[in-house]
């Protein structure tokens, strides 16, 4: 296929998914508000916020890395997204899925955080290294059960190609990884809680004690880039989980319904639990989810 058409399709799918991710963020804020007994902001609030932060007249930079931080973060989001086939069998939404893209996606999930760490560190505010330290340590912790789950899936399907994994789950609902390898799904869903940074794992952003965490010095367009990335990255993670564990999607409405329900799991837990401290969340991730992950590998390899 012509590469230009491919790029055009990629741009379309990125736009659609970014808008979807941001709307999802708005809906979730509304849900949290209703849980608190409030009316809540409008669903389009994230878009307004992005327009406003882009519309700031001045902005402050602290150096080259400060510029690059949000860009790395966005690149991480884009990279994660662009190698995931969003809709099985669709030409427009197949993105750049290739053999072994699962490994690339795993790498890109980490990449954004690291780039952000470099950028935020140059801001010079004492709270941003604190937020980064917490963020990276929590990230390392939840990456362990997630990696174990991914290894279990790779053993199960004998491939690192997401399209093949989705293809193997088609046909019946009982072909989903959820039913063929439930232990891996449990481990991965717990690590999804940490990935989405809703409570009880929201200590990284910690709005009360270390204001807002890593992006504390980010202003104007830097912040807007980060906000855009938040929408894109959230959607990309949800689509990855849908592909790996819940049978993928064959059209757009199915994709939206499935990702929404996966996100709701995170939101339900977030709305009903208080927050862990950093060492508590580390300990939590390295205990039960890790054991479940190991069990899933043993289960799939030897039984």
């Amino acid at each position: 296929m012509n590469i230009w058409i491919k790029i055009l399709y990629a741009v379309i799918s990125v736009l659609v998914v970014t808008i979807y991710g941001l709307t999802l963020g708005g809906i979730v804020r509304k849900i949290y508000a209703r849980v608190h007994g409030r009316y809540g902001p409008s669903v389009w609030q994230p878009f307004l916020d992005i327009i406003k932060t882009h519309g700031k007249r001045v902005s402050i930079s602290h150096g080259y890395m400060f510029y690059l931080g949000p860009i790395f973060r966005l690149a991480g989001g884009l990279g994660t997204y662009l190698f995931i086939p969003v809709i099985f069998g669709s030409v427009v939404f197949s993105n750049f899925s290739i053999a072994g893209d699962l490994l690339l996606v795993m790498y890109f999930i980490f990449f954004g955080q690291l780039g952000m760490a470099l950028g935020a560190g140059e801001g010079g505010h004492p709270y941003s290294p604190l937020g980064i330290a917490r963020g990276l340590s929590q990230m390392t912790a939840f990456e362990v059960p997630f990696s174990l789950a991914v290894i279990a899936i790779a053993i199960q399907y004998n491939t690192f190609n997401l399209t093949t994994i989705v293809a193997a789950q088609q046909g019946s609902i009982l072909n989903w990884t959820l039913f063929t390898n439930p232990l891996a799904v449990v481990a991965a869903m717990i690590s999804l809680l940490g990935m989405n940074m809703h409570p009880p794992f929201s200590i990284v952003l910690a709005p009360q004690e270390i204001p807002i965490g890593p992006p504390i010095e980010m202003n104007s367009s830097f912040l807007a880039t980060l906000q855009t990335n938040r929408g894109l990255f959230t959607a990309a993670k949800l689509i990855l989980f849908m592909n790996l564990f819940f049978g993928g999607a064959t059209n757009l409405p199915i994709m939206i319904i499935k990702t929404f329900l996966i996100y709701m799991f995170s939101v339900f837990v977030g709305a009903s639990f208080p927050r862990f401290r950093p060492e508590q969340s580390m300990r939590f991730f390295l205990k039960w989810p890790t054991l479940i992950g190991v069990a899933s590998i043993i289960f799939i390899a030897y039984f």
Binding site: R29, A33, Y39, G40, I216, E217, N219
Partner: peptide, 22 residues
């Protein structure tokens, strides 16, 4: 901020740092 008066319905949100607030 709390549920009785709920400023978030007007798009008003607290922000911890002067860099990001308006």
């Amino acid at each position: 901020m709390t549920s009785r008066f709920d400023m978030s319905r007007f798009g008003i949100a607290p922000r911890p740092t002067p860099r990001q607030s308006s």
